[in-house]
Design a protein around this nucleic acid. Structure first.
Lengths: 283, 283
DNA sequence: TTATAAAATGTAACAAAACTTCAGGAAAAG
DNA sequence: CTTTTCCTGAAGTTTTGTTACATTTTATAA
């Protein structure tokens, strides 16, 4: 079941001239067409009403009405990106579920638009080539670092996650030119992260950062800058959508690295999975 | 510009009895209605055609036609979710980004459909009333537990997150009837979680679980069962989408608890935010 | 070029749908 | 109990979609 506009576009070359005139008009002004009667549309396109019906049938719809319904559906889908919604405090459970979920989805969508393809590519390359990977985050971002660590470990990468300044500093002190340090800070202002990254940078490690979009002290230090959307609402929401979109970026990187060495990675995944299962049996 | 179905749902209580009959029919069978003429619809709902027109006007549409177009738009939006996509290993970075993001969005959407409103309500109530909250998870789920702990702590709830059996067991041993234990396990098979929850249950604590959809040993123990979608693809993907949808559920619960005691929660959030900032300044 | 068939398009009648008007009846107010 | 207001449906009107048939255009071959 294809959308109306798409099915028109696909078959436009195989249409008869007059039907084509109508098809082109529909593609150009779909919003107008759905509010037009067949008579008015026939005037504007300068064809007969019968031709319009024939067009609808050619596209395998029952009639003009159904064609309009399909076009309306297409338009709605196109414009369906709801924006972030303020979560009301007195709503029903239903509205919580809908709003929270909607905002999380929105943050993933937004992240796609602020994420540079080139930087992602560079990040995957750097992480893949790294001897050792250091992952830093404080607070909520610390959990993201740990999540990434779990993933990278499963595909047999040497990495460490550190969620406090002391540990980060220690690790940074021992990094070298072959290593990568990955700093996570939603605000991009976290002092501990800035300092830990600086130490690593001074030692020659490659710096990747994941922050909210826009210039900030953390990303200023980076060789490769990754961003998530910065539209999150008010403090009250806690770090909600932000970490969802951060995890989304982590997933993208993980898939990228895995696919570069697919067979090895799958083998490593199998080994870790079995090992975990065996441990469970014996405990 | 609201969707047709939503605008109906919102105003249904303020409708006249006969208009309401139509509105309810539309909400129940929207797919059918968009292919029905006003006459047929009037037969099925046992009201006059005029009433249907009046309903459309009440909802501030020009007429029945426009109402149908809007409903069609809603349905198209609803079904526009692409399904999960197998992530290809040789794709471009663009396709990684698109596929991974799409799958994460899909998992949030799916979760909405397996999440019971009543159970969510009960969970919020239980968590809100709890003296102490124990949060358990192993591996990837451990991070979810920690995330929830961070959130609950910020709004001044007494809670502990434990990510290994020993700690979980110790905490469980000291729980009582006023307490809540929240077990997270995507598979629902994690032995450590099962045992830790059992101890807590024996001590009279209320058990909430968050697992994938369907019967499983972990959720069998629960007083309140929360589910996330279970459609995740293959082992290879690692725990990707699953944790996104788990976090989405955590967000829902968090918002629910916060809104129950809005003023207190906001005050607590402010205090924690300031405290964290002050620490940063002095370090 | 012209005759003929085939395809494409338009016209006009028809059917069906949407919409309007108005009158009857129920509920609310006095 | 009467009056007023509001709600609803029946019947009539207008608009819209559809069909059947006529006309025009295009393609093909003598």
């Amino acid at each position: 079941m294809n959308g109306g506009l798409i099915s028109i576009q696909e078959s436009i070359t195989s249409l008869k001239p007059s039907e084509r005139k109508v098809a082109e008009y529909i593609i150009d002004f779909p919003e107008e067409v759905i509010n037009l009667s067949i008579q008015k549309l026939s005037q504007r396109t300068e064809v007969s009403e019968a031709t319009i019906i024939r067009l609808a049938r050619t596209l395998s719809y029952k009639g003009f009405q159904e064609l309009k319904l399909r076009i309306a559906g297409d338009l709605a889908t196109k414009y369906s990106n709801k924006s972030y919604q303020e979560i009301s405090i007195d709503g029903t459970v239903d509205s919580f579920i809908a709003n929270v979920s909607n905002n999380n989805i929105q943050s993933i969508n937004d992240t796609i638009s602020v994420l540079s393809k080139e930087e992602v590519e560079k990040a995957i390359e750097a992480l893949d080539q790294a001897r050792k990977i250091a992952l830093y985050g404080i607070g909520a971002s610390g959990l993201i670092a740990q999540d990434f660590k779990q993933k990278l470990s499963r595909i047999n990468r040497w990495c460490e996650a550190a969620v406090d300044y002391d540990t980060q500093g220690t690790i940074s002190a021992n990094l070298g030119e072959q290593d990568v340090v990955f700093g996570i800070s939603y605000s991009g202002q976290t002092k501990d992260i800035i300092e830990s990254l600086q130490i690593a940078k001074d030692n020659g490690a490659k710096v990747i950062t994941l922050t909210k979009y826009g210039a900030n002290p953390v990303s200023d230090l980076a060789d490769i800058k990754l961003f998530t959307s910065s539209l999150e609402k008010s403090i009250r929401s806690g770090a909600m959508s932000s970490r969802i979109s951060q995890l989304n970026v982590i997933d993208i990187l993980y898939v990228g690295i895995t696919s570069r060495n697919y067979d090895e990675s799958v083998a490593a995944l199998e080994r870790t999975r079995k090992a975990v299962e065996d441990v469970k049996k014996h405990v």
